[in-house]
Amino acid sequence: MERRYASHPSQVKQFDTERLRQEFHIPKLFTPDALELVLTHEDRMIIGGAAPVNSDVKLETDLKELGVEYFLERRELGVINVGGPGIILVDGTAYDLERKDCLYIGMGSKEVIFRSKEAANPAKFYLNSAPAHKEFPTAKTTLAEAESGAMGSIENSNERTIHRFIHESGIQSSQLVMGMTQLKSGSMWNTMPAHVHPRRMEAYMYFDLPEDAIVIHLMGEPSETRHIVMRNEEAVISPSWSIHSGAGTNNYTFIWSMAGDNKKYADMDAVSMKALK
């Protein structure tokens, strides 16, 4: 498991492109038959992916890093499948996940195994894990079952649907919030006008992008914005003091996940368009 440290906004002002990517960009999530994990010190979120193809992948890591006897002893986990049909075994109970289905796995679950149904069309399980202080039951929701709402307009190039999976009125969790935003054809902007939420960090994972497409992900303090070039199936860490917005060369989908002081999706501090620099 790779470790990333928290950064102060005054430091980030000095970062060049390479340093920004080293600190915040996660380029590798899905390695065949392997588990990829990045631990960020921003609210101790773990971001990663499991890509079983010809063999199962087990949720495990160097437990000294977490100070526990098993991965979810004091953590919870949110999973969204962005690949072919798959199965997640949680302490022997099997959960089928189609593309864009979500599974929440509660604290105290001892064995988690990821499996694809077809090697020719393997599952890709995107993972977010946050520290937990209370146990909640493992629960699944499909894309059709998620609380969803349309936002934006084609005139503003941001017509999109927001799907909320793990949140205060959906799947219950200790602190993890997780969902997905799908931009419609002809739209490219997300999260603009921008906002910050000093009480929570956030991570984005962009997918449904053609091979030659990119998203320019905007980050930084509103008065000191920076950008990171993102490609398909890559993630980016957003500190609580940073905006998190982007524009693509065509439409795309992204998974957002948060951890921090509360589970209120709407808890954010708006940033005036005039304040951005």
Rank of each mutant, 00 (worst) to 15 (best):
F30I: 08
F30A: 04
T31P: 00
T31N: 09
P32T: 15
P32I: 15
P32N: 14
D33S: 11
D33Y: 12
A34E: 15
A34P: 01
L35C: 08
L35S: 07
L35D: 08
L35Q: 12
L35F: 11
L35W: 09
E36K: 13
E36C: 13
V38E: 01
V38C: 00
V38Q: 01
L39K: 10
T40C: 01
T40S: 15
T40Y: 02
H41A: 11
E42T: 06
E42C: 06
E42H: 10
D43H: 13
D43K: 14
R44W: 15
M45V: 12
M45S: 04
I46N: 08
I46G: 01
I46H: 03
I47F: 02
I47H: 05
G48H: 02
G48P: 00
G49E: 06
G49M: 00
A50Q: 03
A50M: 02
A51N: 12
A51D: 03
P52W: 03
P52G: 10
P52V: 01
N54Q: 11
N54K: 13
S55I: 10
S55K: 15
S55Y: 06
S55Q: 15
S55P: 02
D56M: 02
D56E: 12
V57F: 00
V57G: 04
V57C: 02
K58E: 10
K58L: 01
K58H: 09
L59F: 05
L59T: 07
T61W: 04
T61A: 12
D62S: 04
D62N: 11
L63C: 07
L63S: 03
L63G: 05
K64D: 12
E65V: 11
L66H: 07
L66T: 07
L66P: 08
L66S: 05
L66C: 04
G67Q: 09
G67L: 03
G67P: 06
G67V: 04
G67A: 03
V68R: 07
V68W: 00
E69Y: 00
F71G: 06
L72N: 13
